[in-house]
């Protein structure tokens, strides 16, 4: 029971740390605890961060959201246990609500995103499917703000034109040479990636983004919203 066990950690007294924990410390970010995770709520100037959301761009850490992958020949059947219509999704498309998104990555692989702390309930529904709860193994950086395309276009060689990659679309791409799953919502570009690269990815974004007004921000300014539809 190695895989399912560790999400049942209600008894844990340890704090879950984001891969960007050191970044929080370096920037003296204000933090809050959500579902056991210590996450940045803002970087000490929420007003400025809010104005960047309207006119510039922000990078926000959502690594605490639930991330469950479902893979294999029966994935299309199993996914129906949490979303009956998800099996009909085209590859690299998604279906979502405000609190949950199901991304179809390949013919037999789905990635389920959910609000922090809700993964245990979903894993219970998928208990006999071999689903994997990625927990802290998969990190999540979010680009938000009006000018976020200016950051992305300096970061990936993938075509991210908004008319071709509309909200709800999913891309499997590399960003700053790091493999990412990009999930686009109306307000954000959500980049899911392996946790060990997270600081490197953050630093690379800040490096290219500094010239186009990218600021780090937190959950007070950009709270988790997973709905991908327009």
């Amino acid at each position: 029971m190695i895989l399912q066990n560790y999400i049942s950690d209600d008894q844990a007294t340890f704090v879950k740390a984001s891969p960007l924990a050191q970044v929080y410390r370096d920037h003296s970010a204000s933090c809050t605890t959500i579902a056991g995770w210590n996450m940045a709520s803002h970087y000490n100037d929420p007003k400025k961060e809010l104005s960047h959301l309207k006119e510039g761009s922000l990078i926000v850490d959502w690594s605490h959201i639930g991330k469950i992958s479902l893979r294999g020949e029966t994935a299309t059947v199993d996914i129906a246990k949490i979303a009956p219509d998800a099996a009909e999704l085209a590859i690299l498309q998604s279906c979502s609500t405000e609190t949950q998104a199901i991304l179809r990555l390949t013919t037999d692989e789905f990635l389920i995103l959910c609000m922090p702390g809700e993964e245990a309930e979903l894993m219970a529904k998928l208990s006999d499917t071999g689903a994997i709860c990625h927990g802290g193994g998969m990190a999540c950086l979010v680009l938000a703000g009006k000018n976020r395309d200016a950051v992305l276009e300096r970061s990936t060689a993938m075509n991210i034109r908004r008319d071709l990659v509309p909200p709800g679309a999913v891309l499997q791409t590399t960003v700053h040479t790091i493999r990412c799953t990009l999930y686009r919502t109306p307000d954000c570009d959500i980049l899911l990636h392996s946790r060990e690269y997270s600081v490197s990815l953050f630093e690379a974004f800040m490096d290219v983004g500094i010239g186009v007004g990218l600021l780090p921000s937190g959950l007070d300014v950009v709270p988790v919203k997973l709905a991908g539809g327009r």
């Binding site: 740390a17 891969p19 924990a21 050191q22 410390r25 802290g136 970061s155 700053h176 040479t177 790091i178 946790r195 060990e196 690269y197 997270s198 600081v199 490197s200 990815l201 630093e203 690379a204 490096d207 290219v208």
Partner: peptide, 16 residues
Amino acid sequence: GRSQHLIPIRRTAMHD
């Protein structure tokens, strides 16, 4: 281009 992006660094959860 900007060279630092070409070699991403992998850090463990206990790096800090």
